[in-house]
Every structure is written in C-alpha cells, then in structure tokens.
C-alpha cells in the first residue's frame, strides 16, 4: 500500500481528499502546513507521494518541495500540486523546483486518482 502525504491548510480539503485516497486504498499522512509536513519528512516517515497545496500561510508549497528534494530519501519521490492556481508561470516554477505534476482544484475524484496512478507507476 502506497503512503501519500497530503499538505493543505484547509481542514476540509485534508479530510475530503484523505477520504478519497483512503477509499482508493492509499494510506494517508496529513499535515495542515508545510512546516509540519517537513518535520515528518525529516523524521524519515515512509512516504511514496507528496500532494501539496501551493498557497499556504508560512512556508508555501514550492518552498516545501525545494526542502524535501534536498533530503536523499525523497529525491525521486513523485510530488503533485493540488491548488486553485492555474497560471502557467507558477507551474513552471513548481516544475523547476522538482514537482512531478499539477492538478487544479476542484479536481474530480477520477482526475485525482488517475494522476496519482500515473506518477506512482
């Protein structure tokens, strides 16, 4: 079973997306901000995929993935952004920082799960 780390400052998003992932057979680690997520990564929690929001109070999603990519264990882990932002320039910034893909909110369950399957293949 793959473990997905979900990072979003919205408790509703965390709960609803975690429910979708759980139902689809994934184990889910949740973090309400980038700092808590980074702590889990630093603690060496086994994570197969990171899904993060872009705009969050404190450290944003791009800053988070730059930090995560510095950690040897997560250098090649797939990283997806799940965000309301759709601007191409932001996507390119995320790609340069090491993101694997981009999903615009609100995403359907199919969009989300199909993309996850693709990056975990």
């Amino acid at each position: 079973m793959s473990t997905v780390m979900l990072v979003d400052d919205s408790a509703t998003i965390l709960l609803s997306i975690a429910s979708i992932l759980g139902k689809a057979g994934y184990s889910v680690e949740k973090a309400p901000n980038a700092e808590q997520a980074l702590k889990k990564f630093n603690d060496g929690v086994k994570i197969d995929l990171l899904i993060t929001d872009l705009n969050m109070p404190g450290m944003n999603g791009i800053e988070l993935i730059k930090e995560v990519r510095q950690l040897p264990s997560y250098k090649f882990m797939p990283i997806l952004f799940l965000t309301t932002e759709s601007q191409q320039s932001k996507r390119m910034e995320a790609k340069a920082a090491g993101a694997s893909g981009w999903i615009v909110k609100p995403a359907t369950a199919d969009e989300l799960l199909n993309t996850i399957k693709l990056v975990l293949r």
Binding site: D8, S10, T12, I13, S16, I17, S19, I20, K23, T84, K105, P106, A107, T108, A109, L112
Partner: peptide, 14 residues
C-alpha cells in the same frame, strides 16, 4: 456518489 461528493467539497477552498 460519496467519492464525487468528497471531491465537490473542494469548492469551499476555492
């Protein structure tokens, strides 16, 4: 239906 309802809740964040 529940699957999709969970996904639709994202409207609030938007």
């Amino acid at each position: 239906g529940l699957f999709e309802a969970h996904a639709q809740i994202q409207f609030q964040d938007v």
